[in-house]
């Protein structure tokens, strides 16, 4: 088995996450799919770091994790704020500008 299998696996997870972001309507599930995509890219970084024998990839993956944590905190706060005013966590309901 070559390390490439990890890359294929990460590509598959990223694709599944991308489908989820487009197809699902619940804002929290959409958010979880974004997390899945970030995780898949982290696995790619770690695998490249191993292939190259260089820890720089792992440092970048570490920064990705920190930024993802910030993103989750702010994103979930936005979801709670929208839920408070609209009583719904569906991304289709937040279309006030359209009407």
């Amino acid at each position: 088995m070559s390390p490439n299998n990890y890359l294929y696996f990460a590509a598959l997870l990223f694709t599944i996450g991308a489908i989820g972001v487009v197809v699902r309507r619940n804002a929290i599930v959409v958010f979880m799919c974004i997390e899945l995509m970030l995780n898949a890219s982290n696995l790619t970084l770690v695998t490249f770091s191993r292939i190259n024998g260089d820890l720089n990839g792992q440092v970048v993956a570490f920064f990705t994790m920190v930024v993802a944590a910030c993103e989750v905190v702010v994103g979930l706060a936005i979801i709670v704020t929208i839920y408070r005013s609209r009583r719904s966590a569906s991304i289709d309901d937040a279309s006030l500008l359209k009407r």
């Binding site: 997390e35 982290n42 191993r50 570490f62 993802a68």
Partner: peptide, 25 residues
């Protein structure tokens, strides 16, 4: 894959804190 630190951080930050936050919300 030799990323011991990231593995531990993945469990602590993602499955610990982030998923906890998701379930809380």
């Amino acid at each position: 894959q030799g990323a011991l630190f990231l593995g531990i951080v993945q469990i602590v930050v993602y499955t610990g804190a982030v998923m906890m936050l998701f379930l809380f919300i």
